[in-house]
Nucleic acid binder design. Structure first.
Length: 287
DNA sequence: GGGGGTTCCTGTACGC
DNA sequence: TGCGTACAGGAACCCC
């Protein structure tokens, strides 16, 4: 499940391969991969062919490739199982391949950027770039808050927003309009590290606890990034199809029944927001 | 308008 | 062996 570290690994892999390259052809095999592009496949293709990719950017779990000479970008959200793969232009079709974009790089020659997605929650689009404070972002990313490793992320604004929310702190961490990039895995891991029960009402948390949560969020994201992201199966891989290693470092997520690495109490899994919440019932007591 | 629940989707795991 | 069902979850959407 691609969260911030996984998307950043993909962005960093794409950047050197596609920056400065020209899009020579686009094939759409499944229009469900264009749910974020309302104008349809023909329009999507027309807006890309012949264009030059200027760079690769990211905010939270959104990734985009700004196009040279005007204010538009190819944006991508990987959803739960989306992959951006770099392949030889004549490479055989990937399993669940939805879109293939052929690019011609002045140094690396021809490449295929393949968007593959098993569960079809991810999608691509061509979107207009607009200014958001000190940053330029696609319009579809405007409502997404900055992520915790963004140099312009404002800790004070985050703490104030958390203090106004009556919802469970885990729901707040998953709310991409408050802080972006965090999904179920890293929310559970950060709350375990901060010793906070996932269902603690956000507005009841002392400032010190919110500070601790944010510090642990940053810590767990940085560690996952250093290990190439979290892979449980073939659902998340980098642009070369390789898995990340952070799954070996998980303390709470998916560890139900196993002893808490801190106190030995078995980790518990409870259903929360139609997904799993993993925590230590002793270290993370409900207030 | 805040809060919380539902929905979309498909491969895999598991029980009978 | 084969079938049916539960499960995984990001984000938009809907309803109260």
């Amino acid at each position: 499940m691609p969260e911030l570290p996984e998307v950043e690994v993909v962005r960093a892999g794409l950047a050197p391969a596609v920056t400065g390259s020209t899009i020579t052809g686009v094939s759409v095999f499944d229009e469900r991969a264009l749910t974020r592009h309302g104008a349809g496949a023909a329009d999507f293709v027309a807006r890309l062919e012949g264009r030059t990719i200027a760079s690769a950017s990211r905010r939270g779990k959104f990734l985009w490739l700004p196009l040279a000479t005007d204010d538009s970008a190819l944006i991508a959200h990987l959803g739960m199982s989306g992959q951006m793969l770099l392949r030889a232009p004549d490479a055989v079709s990937e399993r669940h391949e939805r879109i293939r974009i052929h690019v011609d790089h002045p140094v690396h020659a021809e490449l295929a950027v393949v968007f593959a997605d098993q569960r079809t929650f991810g999608s691509l689009a061509v979107d207009r770039l607009v200014r958001d404070g000190a940053t330029i972002v696609p319009t579809q990313v405007l409502h997404i808050a900055r992520d915790p490793i963004d140099p312009f992320f404002d800790d004070l604004v985050f703490r104030a927003a958390v203090g106004k929310k009556k919802s469970a702190i885990k729901r707040v961490l998953l709310d991409q309009t408050i802080v972006s990039g965090i999904g179920n895995i890293y929310a559970d891991e950060a709350l375990w590290a901060a010793r906070i029960h996932p269902e603690t009402p956000a507005d009841g948390l002392p400032t010190q606890a919110v500070r601790r949560i944010l510090a642990e969020v940053r810590s767990v994201l940085a560690k996952a990034l250093a290990e190439g992201g979290t892979s449980f199966d073939a659902q998340y891989v980098n642009v070369n199809g390789q898995a990340g290693y952070f799954a070996h470092s998980l303390n709470a997520y998916g560890q139900q029944g196993k002893p808490c690495p801190r106190c030995g109490t078995p980790i518990v899994r409870e259903s929360f927001m139609n997904r799993g919440s993993h925590f230590c019932p002793k270290c993370q007591r409900r207030r």
